[in-house]
């Protein structure tokens, strides 16, 4: 219908498949996010470390070229193995957490402040799709700064070292992907739950950071007070580090909690976040009494 006609007319055209509709949320959200200069700059900064790693991998494989400028040790400048990829996962995991603290609080709270949820749910769009869509905003963004460049580094190194190295070390790429995905899932669930309950973006960002740092502090306090290691159940950072070490087969220097316990603590946190989201993400709140 031409605009000038200005009559009401129903729509009889094709519809998109229902399963694909949750992607509408991240598409629109990214457009809005990258309008913010600060976030764009930070995103670019997040890719500096992978670029540095890429350079290191290249130079490590071309020692002859490097030897023209500096004295190269016999074993090369660095060993590309579990330790290298664990450090990469840790560094990029930290950037991922900071990125979540910037992006996460603005995901659900504006919809609650502007009473927008009935507009979503009066359409063929469920609460599960809403949470999936909002989670995809963070998950895809964080994936592009964590495991995707990580896998690219692994493939570059494989291409330089040959098929045998790739076959023998394939588990490193698997560990990196699994470790990053676990971290992304945990922080995005936490960010969404906080965003659903704390309406002010700045406060929500602060609560997310506090959760991380206060959790670590509280864990240390409990450990010291009652002479135990179980306080680490509250330390999200320690828990994920424990899992990463296990995935990269690097033993802990000091035994704290087991990787099963670390996994359970993260699973409980995610379940709690889901419960909080489920209570809050609904078209209308029902006041009891």
């Amino acid at each position: 219908m031409a605009v000038y006609k200005r009559n009401y007319k129903s729509y009889d055209g094709a519809l998109t498949p229902a399963w694909s509709r949750f992607w509408i949320l991240p598409r629109h959200a990214w457009k809005g996010l990258f309008r913010q200069r600060f976030l764009t700059i930070f995103y670019v900064l997040c890719l500096f470390y992978p670029l540095g790693c890429l350079l290191a991998i290249y130079l490590n494989a071309n020692l002859g070229f490097l030897a023209q400028f500096i004295r190269v040790p016999d074993g090369g400048i660095l060993e590309i193995g579990p330790e290298f990829f664990l450090t990469y996962t840790r560094v990029q995991g930290t950037f991922a957490f900071l990125m979540t603290a910037f992006v996460g609080p603005g995901l659900v709270s504006p919809d609650l402040v502007n009473n927008a949820l009935p507009l979503y749910f009066c359409r063929p769009f469920t609460r599960v799709e809403y949470v999936l869509g909002k989670m995809a905003v963070i998950a895809v963004l964080l994936s592009t700064i964590t495991w995707i460049p990580g896998v690219a580094l692994f493939l570059v190194h494989s291409s330089l070292m040959g098929w045998t190295w790739m076959r023998d070390n394939w588990w490193l790429a698997n560990s990196m992907v699994l470790g990053s995905v676990l971290w992304i899932f945990a922080v995005s669930m936490l960010a969404l739950a906080i965003s659903a309950w704390v309406r002010w973006k700045i406060v929500a960002g602060a609560v997310l950071a506090l959760w991380f740092f206060l959790g670590a502090g509280l864990a240390q306090a409990i450990n010291s007070a009652i002479d135990t290691q179980k306080g680490y159940w509250l330390d999200l950072g320690h828990g994920i580090n424990r899992l990463w070490r296990d995935l990269f087969d690097i033993p802990e220097r000091v035994e704290t909690i087991t990787s099963e316990e670390a996994g359970a603590s993260i699973a409980i946190l995610c379940a709690l976040c889901l419960l909080l989201l489920w209570k809050k993400i609904r078209a209308y709140e029902v006041v009891k009494g």
Partner: peptide
């Protein structure tokens, strides 16, 4: 809906 509702920033 009855209430004031919209998607912010659009």
């Amino acid at each position: 809906p009855e209430n004031d509702c919209f998607i912010g920033g659009m």
